[in-house]
Simulated assay, not measured.
Amino acid sequence: MGGDSLVRRLCVFCGSSSGKDPGYAADAAALGALLARRGIGVVYGGGQVGLMGTVADAALEAGGEVTGVIPKHLMREEIAHHGLTELHVVADMHERKATMARLSDGFLALPGGAGTLEELFEVWTWAQLGLHAKPVGLLDVRGFYSRLAEFLDHMTDEGFLNHASRDLVTIDSDPEVVLDAFARHSYTPIDKWAV
């Protein structure tokens, strides 16, 4: 595929629900279409429900490549997306996350719940520890992550997170800004233990 020099496939973490505001789904669809236009494949959790399904459908409709990774216990007809470019069925959630990470050149979270945050924080922690050098970001659509961004700054101010670790996460409301930052991303190993 063509596209951004660094990110050829982007792992998108997002909700299996669509949220109360219909704007979340509109933003998810816009991201999926944008990724396809930029020649960036989508790697995601393999569902057809919620924002997950919206991102996948929009990317596919715009001619993009979409790879899903779903554990066997979620392979029910109403959850799994069967119209993807590729669907990997794995044993469990741990293998799902490892496979998505292996297939991706970066990670971006849209609005979601506990699972979305867990996935995001895991790949961010891996970056802090030098286990990967891929960009990590939050798409702060409709201010969804503004309080989380404030809390990350609070963690830094209180000495539980160093500035280099905090700076590993790009946060913006504009997906173009995030993708441009990902295209320029360079990883410098950090001393996670220095605050």
Rank of each mutant, 00 (worst) to 15 (best):
G113V: 11
G143E: 11
L168D: 03
T99H: 03
L131R: 15
M155W: 15
L139S: 06
E78N: 13
V7M: 15
P135H: 13
V123F: 00
T54F: 05
R96V: 12
A127T: 11
C11R: 08
A56E: 06
L148E: 10
R147Q: 12
S18W: 00
L35D: 03
A58V: 01
G130V: 15
G106V: 10
H88E: 14
S173D: 01
R9I: 06
E78A: 09
G83D: 05
R142A: 10
R96P: 09
V55E: 00
A30R: 15
D157S: 13
S16R: 09
W124C: 07
V55G: 00
T54Y: 01
A91Q: 12
G2K: 12
R147F: 01
L179T: 06
V89W: 01
G47W: 02
L129S: 15
D167M: 04
I190M: 11
G41H: 05
L152C: 03
G68M: 03
R8S: 15
I190P: 02
V195C: 09
K192W: 10
D140E: 09
P189N: 03
V49I: 15
A30G: 08
G159M: 13
Y187M: 12
S18G: 13
G159W: 09
H94Y: 11
G41W: 00
G106H: 04
V169T: 14
A59F: 09
E86I: 03
T156D: 04
L179N: 08
D57Q: 14
L108Y: 05
E61P: 03
E95G: 04
A29S: 14
V123K: 01
L138G: 02
V141T: 06
I190Q: 14
H88C: 15
L35C: 07
P189C: 07
A181P: 02
A164E: 14
S186R: 15
D105P: 14
W193T: 11
E86Y: 10
H185F: 14
D21I: 07
M75C: 07
V177L: 02
L84T: 05
L6H: 15
G2L: 10
A181M: 06
M1A: 11
G63H: 10
H81L: 05
L108K: 05
S146R: 15
T188P: 02
G23P: 04
L6C: 07
G23S: 09
P111I: 07
G137Q: 01
L74C: 04
L129I: 05
D140W: 09
E77W: 01
R76I: 13
L10H: 02
I70T: 12
H73G: 08
M75L: 02
P135C: 12
A109D: 06
E118Y: 06
G41N: 05
A28H: 03
A62N: 11
